[in-house]
């Protein structure tokens, strides 16, 4: 199993004491699978995604990626896991402004030592970015920037793709195109895709769906 989450708890300190965000989450995800995580604001979707991506740490519970418990890793170990196994697509793109589009796309692939220039070229072609490779992110539109962020993740061929509202800033038509492409490419690279979204329409296109409410899985749909 590529991803295994069991009995995951997380809370944040607030003015009224500790506020539980995740309460006993359990989930599994295999290679080639697609899973949508839905829920209202504050239900804990992003926190779960961040913990799975090694960006945050749980209070208790186990998150194992490729059989390795990331909770037992130190900072450098988690960084290595993010570099080698996980790719995250953020809603706010979070491109590196000082690098060109081409360098942004190849960034994680080069970090993980999996740079494949032909694959990057193909990705750029299929995402309509070939003409933008020499530009800097600030010179691109929002849709273009989002496609660069997706390309960056796919270029590294990570085992697990985590996407946090990747089309939240795009119009419906563009969002559909981008999602279609991302799913196709994820399947082609035999990656697992975990998508956090508000959109039931987008969630409906995933293989499975988990609905979160108040930090717990309310229902699971196939």
């Amino acid at each position: 199993m590529l991803l295994s989450v069991s009995d995951l708890h997380k809370s944040y300190a607030g003015p009224d004491g500790h506020l539980p965000v995740l309460r006993g989450i359990k989930m599994l995800l295999a290679r080639g699978e697609t899973l949508a995580l839905t829920g209202e604001s504050g239900s804990g979707k992003s926190t779960l995604l961040h913990i799975i991506g090694g960006l945050d740490q749980p209070d208790s519970g186990i998150v194992a990626v490729d059989g390795v418990d990331i909770g037992a890793m130190d900072d450098a170990g988690r960084a290595g896991m993010r570099r080698d196994k996980v790719g995250v697509v953020f809603q706010q793109f979070n491109l590196i402004p000082s690098l060109t589009v081409e360098s942004n796309i190849g960034f994680q692939a080069r970090l993980s030592g999996r740079l494949d220039q032909n694959w990057i070229k193909e990705l750029a072609d299929r995402l309509g970015l070939s003409a933008q490779l020499g530009k800097h992110p600030e010179q691109l539109s929002g849709g273009q920037q989002q496609r660069v962020a997706i390309a960056r993740t796919l270029a590294a061929k990570p085992a697990l793709i985590l996407a946090d509202e990747p089309t939240g800033n795009l119009d419906e038509e563009t969002a559909d195109k981008v999602m279609e492409l991302m799913m196709t490419l994820a399947i082609e690279t035999d990656s697992a895709l975990l998508l956090v979204t508000h959109s039931h329409r987008l969630a409906g296109r995933m293989g499975r769906r988990l609905h979160l409410r108040a930090g717990q899985i309310e229902r699971a749909e196939e």
Binding site: G53, L55, D75, A76, A79, G80, M81, R82, R83, D84, V88, F90, N94, L95, I96, P97, S98, F107, Q108, L111, S112
Partner: peptide, 15 residues
């Protein structure tokens, strides 16, 4: 922070 966070997210430690 906004410039460094993406680099950190992609596997470079804070240290």
């Amino acid at each position: 922070i906004p410039q460094l966070a993406p680099v950190w997210a992609q596997g470079i430690t804070r240290a």
